[in-house]
Simulated scan of single mutants.
Amino acid sequence: MSEDFSGGKRGPVLKPDPAKKRITIRLDGDIIEHFKQQVLKAGGGNYQTLINDALRKHIEYPARPLEETLRLVIREELGNTRYLKEKE
């Protein structure tokens, strides 16, 4: 039995979000692969959305000064060390 698609329309099933712009961009292969792997680990999704989210976070939360970042990392590591000692 064959399907009749004579009344079908070409194009996407869902209309694209008008707030989004279609562009062509060249990214390094390892960057694309990183985001595709994140989608696989999550069990699905869209790597382009992850890239968009990463860019948005970078814009909204500018990098901290190095000293502040180091202090944060040291506090986290000291906290992990205390936690591990308490478990022993």
Rank of each mutant, 00 (worst) to 15 (best):
L78K: 04
L84Y: 12
L55A: 06
L14A: 09
I59M: 14
G7V: 11
K9M: 10
R82Q: 03
P18C: 02
E76S: 11
R26V: 15
L55F: 12
L72S: 02
I32C: 09
L72A: 04
E77W: 12
Q38G: 09
I59N: 13
T24Q: 05
A63S: 14
E60Q: 07
A54L: 06
T69V: 15
M1C: 10
H34C: 03
F5L: 10
N52W: 04
N46W: 04
E33P: 01
P12M: 05
R75K: 13
N52H: 11
D17V: 01
T49N: 08
L27K: 07
K21E: 15
V73N: 06
I74M: 03
E86K: 15
L66K: 14
K21H: 09
G44L: 15
G7M: 11
E76W: 08
P65H: 09
G79V: 04
R26W: 05
Y61M: 08
G44R: 02
G44E: 04
F5K: 00
T49H: 13
L84Q: 14
L70P: 12
D28N: 14
L50Y: 14
R64N: 04
A19C: 10
R22N: 11
L78A: 11
P16T: 01
I31N: 06
D17E: 06
K15N: 14
Q38A: 14
R75D: 15
E3D: 10
G7H: 09
R75G: 10
G45E: 03
T69Q: 10
V39C: 08
H34A: 04
G8F: 08
E68Q: 13
G11M: 01
I32E: 02
K36D: 06
L27C: 07
P16I: 01
I23E: 01
P65D: 15
R75H: 07
I32L: 11
M1H: 04
I23D: 04
L70G: 07
K57I: 01
G7F: 12
T69R: 03
I25Q: 14
